[in-house]
Nucleic acid binder design. Structure first.
Lengths: 337, 337
DNA sequence: TAATAAACTACAAACGATTGCGGGAACGAT
DNA sequence: ATCGTTCCCGCAATCGTTTGTAGTTTATTA
């Protein structure tokens, strides 16, 4: 079961040149104690034998790795894959590699993945937590072991770690206010799973925007469901059945908005003339659907970059205490409003 | 610059119990030489101190890691993030972790990433190559070091390694034949970068389908461009300008098809009545655009799974020689045809 | 020429785990 | 009393690097 891999080591090089491994090591690391002649010889042999240092051995010796653990719910979501892309970008340029794992929205798997990352002695971890994560004990384990931790988007509020988030409350508030200013008065909200901070805040933003603008709050216009297209479809369907027809909807995310739009179109109504719609996240998809969807851009690539920057700064002791970065969102106005 | 991390080791446990580290190791690995009483004591202390084995040390000792390197052009593409998801799924269940890197379609970066993966002594590598990769020397380096390699989708033909692909030729041939059977006669193809095998094969499939069905091949209906929406838009634009209007188009991928559709709609023409369209890949986006797009599903999640399975089998010596798996594609017929 | 500094290089320990081998203890059988 | 088993466990080497210390040249200076 061994990897058959046979790599050349500094000992191989040492033997050939009849010098000691330590000299080879110092030569390769350009240590001043080694004379240039020797360094050149070492480097030549190293190149000839395709020597590449064994990170494993280095890590063991130095008690430190250049690996960052990334755990997100699901890679296939636009938002998260863009974030990973941003993380990888920064990591790459700082000489770090990233280990990616997905929790699949499962708390148990999140815990197991955390353990796996600890075993790997990652230098730090970047996380967006699963929907079903209530306890943050596994993250506290990381901190107890002095492994730096950065949350992004879906954060764990009661853990002292750096965070990269958007202002979900304000983004939602602004989106709804935008609708109100456009003259819409019966605005529905399809909320996400409560218990997850970001969705709670979006809901609160909706409620407060309604209240502050002195629009009557109608309980029936506030629906709770999941995060998928089907949820949006069904929520809209139930509104139609209840004869409580809004003139605009604001949904927890883009897929839900799209599902709702589908149902609206099936009802023979026009968007935005009969019902306007705003989603959340600016999935690529929103710009090409017909009508294109007004939505809130969270700049996930940028969030990933910032999270990686924060983490690396913490790892390298350039950032001594947790910091929260709030990424500005942008309402992307399109045809659906 | 050290990670402050302080982890408990088997030595710590050994000291507490006044036994030797080797006994602790054997106890934890459930070795028959160790009596149950001792094992229990060891396990208790291990749990109390939150011991978790140092993968680094294990890897060094065993000269083998349980890490798989994954290199793809860009994570943010639907197709690749789904594939990664599939890879991670299989890897997770076999106890492997994955290191992800992106080449960003750059040959140089692909080479550097390969070196980084070798340094990490990954047990194997899964790759979809960049557009600009002509030489496969860096992959041969992997094989020389006996590091198993599996390609998926964009493969390197002249390297002897396992591959997971679709039959691009047949998929394209079938898609075009489908159009022909529907009665379309002036079918255009917007081809991708030649030099990349998969795109060449799709082109060939198009050409042969035209010829075998005795439809006149019109040179002006074959356009070469890139892979983005803008390329599709411009290709369509140039067709309009050349007054050579097709009654159907088959594009190298979905974004190109969408770009073309955009231009078609701008021209006031109807899809599929005036011009039909077929894309390639079944990006999520294609099902929600209006009109929804007929396309070819490549089952990227499944490709990722298969690639991971092949790789792990090779790593564990259960697969002795390279194998090529061809994933069946499926023409998803929607409104655009 | 001898003393001293400067320039190189080697030795050995360490990182944390695994594992072949050997040895002590306890026990029964002869 | 001797031998043989069986059961537990420890010693020490090993994986590939890094690095403090010490040692050997060589060059420099008095």
């Amino acid at each position: 079961m061994k990897n058959g891999a046979k790599h050349t080591t500094i000992i191989d090089i040492a033997k050939i040149l009849r010098i000691s491994p330590s000299t080879v090591s110092r030569a390769l690391n350009n240590h001043p104690d080694i004379k240039i002649k020797t360094k050149e010889k070492v480097r030549n042999i190293a190149k000839k034998l395709q020597y590449s240092p064994n990170t494993i051995a280095q890590s063991l010796k130095n008690n430190r790795t250049k690996t960052i653990g990334v755990m997100i719910p699901e890679i296939k979501h636009d938002f998260f894959s863009s974030a990973i892309s941003g993380i990888e970008e920064i990591a790459y340029h700082s000489g770090y590699t990233i280990i990616v794992c997905q929790s699949n929205e499962s708390y148990e798997r999140e815990v197991l993945n955390t353990i796996a990352l600890m075993r790997h002695r990652v230098a730090g971890v970047i996380v967006s937590i699963s929907q079903n994560t209530k306890s943050g004990e596994h993250f506290k384990d990381l901190l107890r072991r002095k492994i730096p931790l950065v949350f992004f988007d879906r954060v764990c509020d009661d853990i002292e770690a750096s965070k990269v988030v958007i202002d979900d409350y304000k983004s939602a508030f602004d989106a709804v206010t935008f609708l109100i200013n456009k003259g819409y008065k019966k605005i529905a909200h399809f909320a996400g799973p409560q218990g997850v901070g970001v969705y709670e805040k979006r809901l609160k933003g909706y409620v407060d925007a309604i209240k502050e603008n002195k629009i009557p709050f109608v309980n029936g216009l506030l629906l709770h469901a999941g995060l998928n297209t089907s949820d949006g479809y069904e929520s809209m369907d139930s509104l139609f059945k209840s004869k409580l027809i809004p003139d605009a909807i604001f949904t927890v995310n883009d897929p839900v908005a799209l599902g709702a739009c589908k149902r609206i179109k099936e009802a023979g109504l026009k968007i935005p003339n009969d019902i306007a719609a705003i989603g959340f996240s600016n999935n690529v998809i929103t710009s090409v659907v017909d009508p294109s969807l007004t939505t809130v851009d969270q700049f996930p690539f940028e969030m990933g970059r910032k999270a990686a920057e924060l983490l690396i700064q913490t790892i390298e002791n350039k950032l001594m205490k947790p910091k929260t970065i709030i990424i500005d969102t942008k309402l992307i106005v399109r045809e659906s409003t």
